[in-house]
Design a protein around this nucleic acid. Structure first.
Lengths: 342, 342
DNA sequence: CTGAAAGCGCTTACAG
DNA sequence: CTGAAAGCGCTTACAG
């Protein structure tokens, strides 16, 4: 465990010079630098992050906050994207899961006094006013990824729900569907996740396209804690759709996973997709192409990268040209949609 | 940004007492402790990890090393499992990707001098002798997850390939298949990943069950850099299987994803699965049930948890009863296997 | 149970 | 370009 001091002795220079040589900062002659680096390598020397951190005031650590497991399609991809950028920039990425409102509350309460992060990326979380206020007062940058609103964040990366829903409605309209609907996911009672955002956008788009209220169906997300399992939620939702008077001939579902599960549920009771019910998903995840699902494609790896690029720039004191990025999704046409009657 | 000093002043005690009270270590009267905590909360005080770390010599940081992206089915799940345990124990989990042998080399070279980790989990990596030597000399624990061998590691968590392949061969045998084969994934030329381990186990199991060399086929994994894409590798492998003289009637494929891709490739050229070719996968990942794939189920979230429990115990100075855990897979029967001729 | 003091291993003005 | 010195904010024997 060589220390910087030993490197200095062996290299015959002062500790200050070793520090400057190793970090490539400050003026050091090329010759000295090379020599110091050579000695450091020989001794397997690595700077102590804790000591550097304490002395410099920078932790070189960025935390990424989730409310769900890390191994969901979106979260894992966002993590990967952020990792690529942060590791390149020399920062450690520390994932963190805040599962309950109580935990979230505690996390935010300590944020003002937390000197253990240089920046943070907050994923898919809807903030309340207190939290927005805390973020605004923070001296470190906070970036909202898949943020529901820009309030409080130094920057955000989001998908354009309005445009996406426009594309979805347009497709269904062009295929001749006169009665359409939107299906929300089960709600996490602990977080104000915004299915509403997407469903609202769908409804607005439909109205704009001339759909009448009577021809629009909204299948609201029920409290997920009411269900024993994902399958239960799927069945319950499928039943609501099936028993709906004047059932829509096409639906858009909040996420691919829910859409795919619904396709299976429909087929099990003899409702053909897309002949009897056309379905559009959202995500274009790993399973979508196998399920031949028509869907709106988003790229969470890239979103993770963008969010990380923003925090890095902000931590470096730069000003962002475009702090709030809104990404467009692209419609992927597959086999779960078809012209009505064909 | 309150410091421990301010908390001490406001609480009317010494800094030592604040430290002891907040960390729950050392003897402090219940009354003092409560008071200090109350003051700390009021000031939004959080201990500086860097300072604690520097003073105590513990970094409270565990790194998890991967050679592939974080958002693969296995890696994301392992990360999630490890996170659950480490966060509970107060450790930060810092993921790290080492993509090339050169990077890996550098990582290992610096390991002896690296004081920035209290422990590490190394995922799916085949170590060479030098690396094994470095790990052995390390003062911090290293746990191999999905390790190919136990050499160098303080502990490992692995899946029982021999037993798994035994189950696979037994199933095929019981279904009446007389010519069987194993299909390896494309090889990463940069890492000595061990498809060989699994394929070797398959071959051994088959010989034990009485299969003759002439009735055994091994489709070796080719250097993945030779292929432009995953699809290319799939096509090339499918061709080799199809054009094999005396083609097997059943194959076991190294992973589900490759197995599923092969199913599609086979069906495209009119080879029916399972009628003409039965297929068994390995993993039981997200897509397997949708593909109706018969497969060997492993649980990487649990493996991540177990690996993390081992590092935590070792970091706490405990001795493990069972440092090397070998997990059994379970055979999930689905639609890609069937009695021969039915 | 509590406090005074040394020290962890760096970085960074400051001076030259 | 380089060095001496102060200081970052804690923890932990040591003493009482």
């Amino acid at each position: 465990m060589a220390s910087l001091k030993e490197v200095a002795e062996q290299a015959g220079v002062s500790e200050s010079t070793v520090s400057r040589a190793l970090r490539g900062t400050g003026r050091v002659s090329a010759k000295t630098r090379a020599h110091v680096q050579e000695v450091a390598n020989r001794l397997h020397f690595t700077l102590s992050r804790s000591a550097s951190s304490l002395a410099s005031g920078k932790t070189m650590r960025v935390t990424m906050v989730f409310t769900d497991t890390l191994n969901t399609w979106f979260n894992a991809a966002a993590l990967e994207g952020a990792y690529e950028v942060l590791s390149e920039a020399g920062y450690d990425l520390v994932p963190m899961i805040v599962r309950t409102q109580a935990n979230m509350q505690r996390f935010f309460e300590r944020l003002p006094g937390n000197r253990n992060l240089d920046g943070m990326i907050v994923v898919s979380i809807m903030l309340d006013n207190t939290q927005v206020g805390i973020l605004e007062d923070l001296t470190i940058p906070s970036v909202g990824l898949d943020a529901r609103a820009i309030g409080g964040y130094s920057a955000t990366v989001r998908v354009d729900d309005a445009d996406s829903m426009h594309q979805a409605v347009q497709l269904l309209h062009s295929l001749g569907h006169e009665r359409i609907g939107f299906v929300e996911m089960p709600d996490n009672p602990d977080f104000l996740f915004s299915a509403k955002l997407r469903s609202g956008a769908f409804m607005d788009a439909a109205r704009q396209m001339g759909y009448d209220e009577n021809d629009l169906a909204l299948f609201e997300g029920r409290d997920s804690s009411k269900f024993r399992s994902f399958q239960d939620a799927v069945s319950e939702t499928a039943n609501r759709i099936i028993s709906r008077p004047n059932r829509p001939t096409a639906i858009c579902v909040e996420t691919d996973d829910f859409a795919i599960a619904l396709i299976y549920a429909m087929r099990r009771v003899g409702i053909r997709v897309p002949e009897d019910l056309a379905i559009i998903g959202f995500d274009d995840n790993d399973r979508s192409s196998m399920a031949e699902l028509t869907t709106l494609h988003q790229d969470p790896v890239m979103m993770g990268r963008m969010a990380a690029e923003k925090v890095v720039a902000l931590m470096h004191g730069e000003t962002l040209h475009e702090p709030h990025s809104m990404l467009r999704t692209s419609l992927i046409m597959r086999a779960t949609t078809r012209r009505l009657g064909q």
